[in-house]
Design a protein around this nucleic acid. Structure first.
Length: 462
DNA sequence: ACGACGCCTGGTGAAATTCC
DNA sequence: GGAATTTCACCAGGCGTCGT
């Protein structure tokens, strides 16, 4: 699957502290010799461009659901011509820079740098967004606090940058662009697969909870909107008759600590199985939980999980479900997740959705015998273990691909690797040692992840 | 040139209100 | 009249605008 890119044959001292050596035939120039500042106003008919930390320069959309901040006065907006480098002077140290895709207007808080001949702006935006260069930017920026740092043209033009020959700038940018397209496709596919896996997991739970373990037994309609029918012999019961809903406690936030005192479970911690903050005051026995307890987040998505993080205290708006002998806890968690998914869809709120313990208690659940509940849980775990393993692998792959891309960009723009001979048609997705499958999917078939998914599931089941 | 501040969203500690 | 539930108010992140 190809081999790792080689270094350049010869290097020389660069005189730069953050980049001690560059390929021998590269130059080092101050940005002022590479770019000219462009200050043109009064082209109010042009589209508005904005710089995002993640995606570079793009045309701002005013579609529904987007931010509605409007600029009262476009007359101070500066023109950026297609191919100009634009950066947000308050955010360059965080990587807010990109190449204007078309003629447009940028905020007065931006600097527009028009490349001279011999400069490929794409190479330089890759360079400007590397971690080392951003640290340099930080040290050239001025401001009273880090968050107010600004990098004006005056400082920017004095910053030295490596300057490969134009052909090589293009070559590097082409290579990184191609690699970016591949990387994006790999990541997008994996995210889609993760979404499909989540759906499939819910389907498995739904089936197991609805049908039990004996197919073809008589079914009855439940009347529950989130669960159409269950076996006739199952009983149903109100959750409140068998489950105590224990609310979290509104702990005094001035006694929150990190790494000292009692672990405190907040909504965001439910799936993480570990806490971020602790409580340094007196324990509240009512709010104490331990591994195996069923937790429900009462705000937002109404998440449900069986806690695995050991002894802890529940903060307000997280509750714990304490069933009597009628319910197995893991089964309760499975069914509760199904029910609350429906409840969540029925809840309307302009901001955060809220759930009350009364709503939980009023739910009606199918309640097979506890032995059957345990068997259902075991079956769900068996049926989803492959999914869980695949999800773990996909998340790891996404992390590796992102990490590799960042390193590849840094190594390419600083001349640590020589991309002159690299195959642009087939850039390395990851590393030679641990290459991910490049024939992931042909272009144009990206919407269909079915085969990939089946392959992933088959692989996970081996 | 540069400090101060706006606006939107998703969260979240804590007060206000309602319920039983 | 305390517990349960809802609402308030503020925060951080993201992306700037405004006033001097």
């Amino acid at each position: 699957m190809g081999s790792r890119l080689p270094p350049y044959p010869e290097y020389r001292e660069s005189g730069l502290a953050w980049l001690p050596r560059v390929p021998s035939h590269w130059d080092v120039r101050r940005n002022g010799r590479l770019f000219a500042q462009r200050v043109e106003t009064g082209r109010e008919e042009l589209p508005i461009l904005e710089v995002s930390l993640r995606t570079g320069v793009r045309v701002r959309s005013f579609g529904e659901g987007d931010r509605k901040q409007v600029m009262a006065d476009r007359s101070k907006y500066k023109r950026a011509a297609a191919g100009d480098v634009a950066y947000n002077m308050m955010r360059l140290w965080q990587g807010a820079v990109g190449v204007a895709p078309e003629d447009g207007l940028v905020s007065p808080a931006y600097v527009v740098a028009a490349p001279y001949d011999g400069v490929d702006p794409r190479y330089f935006t890759y360079l400007f967004r590397t971690a080392d260069y951003m640290r340099e930017v930080e040290s050239f920026s001025r401001g009273i606090v880090a968050d107010r740092n600004r990098l004006y043209w005056g400082q920017f033009k004095q910053m030295p940058s490596p300057y490969p020959p134009l052909e090589e700038q293009r070559r590097i940018a082409d290579y990184l662009d191609a690699h970016g397209r591949l990387t994006n496709r790999l990541i997008r596919n994996r995210r889609r697969m993760l979404a499909v896996l989540k759906e499939r997991r819910q389907g498995i739970v739904q089936d197991a909870v609805a049908r039990g373990l004996q197919p073809s037994e008589p079914m009855q309609r439940t009347g529950l909107p989130w669960l159409a029918e269950v076996p006739t012999r199952w009983n149903r019961t109100h959750v409140g008759s068998h489950v105590r809903v224990v609310n979290g406690f509104p702990f005094d936030s001035t006694l929150f600590r990190v790494g000292e005192g009692l672990p405190l479970v907040r909504i965001r911690d439910i799936f993480r199985m570990q806490t971020v903050v602790s409580f340094a005051g007196d324990p509240v026995p009512e709010a104490a939980i331990d591994t195996g307890d069923v937790l429900v987040g009462m705000d937002g998505d109404f998440n449900v999980a069986v806690w695995q993080g050991g002894p802890a205290m529940l903060n307000q708006r997280v509750c714990c479900l304490r069933p009597d002998a009628r319910f197995d806890r893991a089964y309760l968690a499975l069914v509760m997740a199904l029910a609350l998914k429906w409840v969540n869809e029925q809840t309307f709120s302009t901001t955060v959705k809220h759930l009350s313990s009364t709503t939980i208690r009023r739910l009606r659940f199918p309640a097979p015998a506890v032995e059957e509940q345990e068997a259902i849980v075991a079956a769900v775990e068996r049926a989803t273990s492959a999914i869980a393993a695949t999800e773990k692998r996909l998340r790891r792959e996404i992390g590796l691909v992102e990490e590799y891309r960042e390193r590849l960009i840094a190594d390419s723009v600083t001349g640590a690797l020589d991309v002159r001979t690299a195959d642009i048609a087939a850039p390395l997705a990851y590393g030679a040692e641990d290459d991910l499958a490049l024939d992931d999917e042909p272009d144009g078939a990206e919407d269909d992840v079915g085969e990939d998914l089946d392959a992933a599931l088959a692989e996970a089941e081996e």
